[in-house]
Design a binder for these strands. Structure first.
Lengths: 195, 195
DNA sequence: CAGAAAATGGAACATGTGTTCAATTTCTTG
DNA sequence: CAAGAAATTGAACACATGTTCCATTTTCTG
């Protein structure tokens, strides 16, 4: 992807600055995907967003796919933290259905661009094998998270994850992002509860 | 989108030929999306695929979004028939779980490109409002189909639909398209059956 | 301080893009 | 058959794209 990290990269100011710039490019790419979708990802676009010349993007990543892979991985890591924080904040209700409905609603309302970007990158992985490991890591992380608070049955965990993906996708094409009450019936049916 | 259909369009050979060409462009667009994804959709690309000059595409559709809307709608209609045929063919088993697992497996194995294209167009609707009605029509059709053979609870129907979407998406980023046995546990958990 | 390594950024390249335009062909109608 | 409507198409437009090249600047090492 870039120059192989030498054993003494923490003291070299040149490499440190380079690493910072590399991160700036990744962050800029995520912002571009959020705003304009994957269609908006180009060398010049993300370079402008990051405030660097286009040649710098080529210097740090040898292809546009390289940038996307790095971005998807990065995004996965930071999203975990955000999700965890959101999950903590939302646990004023004690029922799982209400809590999750609230969480999903927030994802498509307060973080619509981010959520959308996530699924676009996700789907892109279906076409570009290079992105697949990053996308699957996403599933693993989410599965682990569900496993903590949910059923032990692997099939149930898989179904739950799939349902959430599907619900979010449907929510993303709604004319305006739905509130928790839209998600509740489906979630309730999923765990055999009353809404 | 095109010239408004005059009351006597069935006798005018010029308009008839035009309509045929319009359909050829839509079909070509679907093939392009299947092969190269939405990223591959351009005037020149679909023109080459359809065997017409690029100017013809502009003549029949006033924008690239117009082509996509028409394609999504078309694709929706033809997919209904194919799905129904597939559903009929697959009813040798009598259990819903096995039948559906088999059907999903076929969608990602024998019709991978088509399924993928469907979801790409679907997700694109999240960014381009013009595509949303077509995308929502998809949900309605699928919901109707599920309603015929499934539960009466609206929440359950919604959950089922969402789960299938999620399962298909996960299947699409697998290294190779999974067989029915991969879908069965999740589907079983969904309807509280043993796999 | 001199030399080397890394990073930077401006310019240029060939190619692809959406779209417009004017001329031409195809077909219908009076 | 002649007039006109509809369809067709090649050429051209201005611009965006991925990528390469090379001169310059920054930073570290001996």
């Amino acid at each position: 992807m870039t120059a192989s990290p030498s054993p003494r990269e923490q003291t070299d100011g040149r490499r440190a600055k380079g690493e910072r710039r590399r991160r700036a490019i990744i962050d800029a790419t995520l912002r571009v995907v959020e705003r304009d979708g994957i269609a908006g990802v180009s060398h010049r676009n993300i370079a402008r967003e990051a405030g660097v010349p286009p040649a710098s993007v080529v210097y740090y990543f040898d292809s546009i796919d390289g940038v996307l892979v790095a971005t998807l991985l990065e995004s996965c890591e930071t999203m975990i933290d955000e999700l965890r924080a959101l999950a903590d904040e939302v646990v004023d209700s004690e029922r799982w259905v209400s809590t999750t409905a609230e969480l999903l609603s927030r994802m498509v309302r307060e973080h619509r661009g981010r959520t959308l970007a996530e699924y676009e990158l996700y789907l892109l992985a279906a076409r570009r094998p290079a992105l697949r490991p990053a996308a699957r890591r996403w599933i693993e992380v989410a599965a682990g998270h569900v496993h903590e608070t949910g059923s032990r049955d692997p099939g149930a965990v898989q179904a739950l994850l799939a349902t959430i993906d599907g619900l979010l996708m449907q929510a993303l094409i709604a004319e305006e992002p739905p509130g928790p009450e839209v998600f509740r019936p489906a979630l309730a049916a999923l765990v055999h509860e009353r809404a």
